[in-house]
């Protein structure tokens, strides 16, 4: 009995360093930030508990509410574009890459994944240059295709800037769904598909009736990774449009709104408490995606042992 109660020392030595760093610089700050969002900062007297008052200000006060709802709306659109463009394109390319006897597979994989390893900063500037009316790469290509009339400075127009930035982000990150789908597809045993084909099923039918259901767990993983990544995005917008997410806040998403609220910009002073409140909303949004994924999707989805 005594030996059972005494916790083996070496286990502590193995786990403690990782747990300590992780707790001190990730878990504690997350909770401390949530705690802070429930407090008001008063001159000189420290923090006072104010309940959900800060959240109330965020969604209703005229100083915060219009920007907050705008950022949320833009963020949803940002996410929807990723789901509708990035993931289907990733799936299509993955399906093509998984074809038998595909020559040049390694070269294709390397090239298609390359943009994903670049930083947002580089990607943002690359596309700023590509789309610049000054340099005329995009304009020139459209002219060559006889579509010169359709060229616009997309990043500079309120109506098109957010969609353009979403597509730039899609360009960069299509490699992630591509690789995850590709991995799942090449994991499907050959005899399964062979059997369907012997029965006379077309490639298209085989894909949607056999392969797609088998990779459904990965579809969920890709969706949740996209969701978390998109509702946490910041760098690309900050690099191309600045902290003010112009033109006229049309590309403002929660990440840039969080940055401005916390740090301030131009005439508005930074406010750590309201910053923590914005982070609190982002935290709840991400939980609202992650928890159903973990507890509903992952439980209910049928996983076939292959």
């Amino acid at each position: 009995m005594r030996r059972l109660r005494q916790f083996p020392f070496h286990i502590i030595v193995f786990i403690l360093p990782a747990a300590a760093i992780y707790t001190a610089f990730m878990i504690y700050p997350l909770f401390d930030s949530l705690r802070l969002s429930l407090h008001g900062a008063q001159e000189g007297s420290g923090e006072v508990f104010v309940g959900l008052q800060n959240y109330g200000r965020l969604v209703a006060d005229s100083l915060y509410a219009p920007r907050f709802w705008g950022a949320l709306r833009h963020n949803v659109l940002f996410f929807v574009i990723h789901m509708l463009v990035q993931n289907p394109v990733g799936l299509l390319l993955a399906a093509l890459l998984s074809a038998r006897h595909l020559s040049g597979l390694a070269v294709y994989r390397t090239l298609l994944f390359a943009p994903t390893v670049l930083s947002f900063v580089i990607v943002g500037f690359i596309w700023q240059l590509m789309l610049s009316p000054l340099w005329g790469i995009a304009g020139g290509l459209l002219r060559a295709a006889g579509l010169a009339a359709y060229f616009r400075p997309w990043l500079g127009l309120e109506g098109s800037a957010l969609v353009t930035l979403s597509l730039i982000s899609v360009w960069q990150f299509v490699g992630i769904p591509l690789m995850l789908f590709h991995a799942a597809l090449i994991g499907i045993p050959d005899d399964l598909l062979e059997a369907a084909r012997v029965d006379g099923a077309s490639g298209w039918r085989v894909f949607w009736r056999i392969e797609f259901p088998l990779i459904l767990p990965v579809v969920g993983l890709v969706a949740i990774l996209t969701y978390v990544g998109n509702f946490n995005a910041f760098d690309l917008i900050y690099t191309t449009q600045g902290a003010l997410a112009g033109p006229n806040f049309s590309t403002d998403i929660l990440g840039t709104f969080f940055y401005r609220t916390f740090f301030g910009f131009q005439l508005q002073l930074g406010n750590p408490v309201m910053g923590a409140t914005v982070a609190g909303v982002m935290f709840l949004l991400i939980l609202a995606g992650v928890l159903p994924y973990l507890f509903v999707w992952q439980r209910r989805i049928e996983v076939y042992e292959l």
């Binding site: 786990i15 990782a18 747990a19 992780y22 001190a24 610089f25 990730m26 878990i27 504690y28 700050p29 997350l30 401390d32 930030s33 802070l36 949740i224 978390v228 946490n232 910041f234 990440g255 969080f258 916390f262 750590p272 910053g275 923590a276 982070a279 982002m282 935290f283 991400i286 939980l287 992650v290």
Partner: peptide, 24 residues
């Protein structure tokens, strides 16, 4: 439980704790 605790951070972005991280 330790495994689950350490895995929490895979899905939750550390950026959301930035206000506190800067204080620390």
């Amino acid at each position: 439980w330790v495994g689950l605790y350490l895995a929490l951070g895979i899905m939750i972005p550390i950026r959301l704790g930035t206000v506190s991280i800067l204080r620390i």
